[in-house]
Amino acid sequence: MHTLPQQLANGLFLGSMYGLIAIGYTMVYGIVQLINFAHGEIFMTGAFGALTVWNCLPDGMNIWAALPLMLIGGAIVSVLIAVGAERFAYRPLRGAPRLAPLITAIGLSLALQQAIFVWYPGADNAKDFPQLGTHPYHLGSIAIQRNDIFLVAAAVVCMVGLAAFVRTSRTGRAMQATAQDPDTAQLMGIDTNRIIVIAFAIGGLFAAVAGVAFGLKYGQITYNMGFQAGLKAFTAAVLGGIGNIYGAMLGGLVLGIAEACATAYIANIPGMHQLGGQGWANVWAFVLLIVVLLVRPQGLLGERVADRA
């Protein structure tokens, strides 16, 4: 179980999830330079939306058949919340100094989390999420859970779709232009408000997919799962170079693999035998972040941006 390939695979699965969430952070940041702190909660509400759909479906329904419906349900919830947040919380603050939207984002994050806690039936405790089945597949010595296959497949589909969208569609190119220079883009006739809404919507969509994947992977979802996941995903976005969508996915994968390896191998380093294990995984993730920021402040795929004077 503890072979290196197995750890790499585990890291890859975890990392795809981080990457999916990180894309939401990175796209929004790239365009409006806002850390959408509530993105972790959008991920969480996506999972709850999907769970709600599952609970509404007739008992004993095949999970594979239900999965598309759950994804759609989760996506609707997440996208609505993300777009609503942009429209009613962030947009009025667009000209304001940077701290204002950041604090709004923190408030929004708490409010969403508590709204689920207070009003979603039974959400004070962890809620069980349907499972895809427990028998893992084996690839050589590596055991792969079915959930993880869904996760990787979803991540690949999302990434390829997004890359195609950004490269080929008019909107996608407008998006890139807006990220480069919002004022000029506006002068060129691009409706920046629309572009920003689309960025939030795509972020919400991917977060919902990640939320479903999270539920499948861990079997349970909680009202406060967005905080940790969001924090990790943002770390991944910074690692990969904030503003760069490929960087977000790469950062997620690197972070996931680093975390899996740290959990498994740190304890083998002489003098650190007590610092391995799951409990310390997050600590190592953040240490990695700080080291990367020291060595390569713009992130793995980021470009150095000079402040124009």
Partner: peptide, 10 residues
């Protein structure tokens, strides 16, 4: 065409 921005930093 001020595409790639690569400039002063740390």
């Amino acid at each position: 065409e001020e595409s790639a921005e690569e400039a002063a930093a740390e």
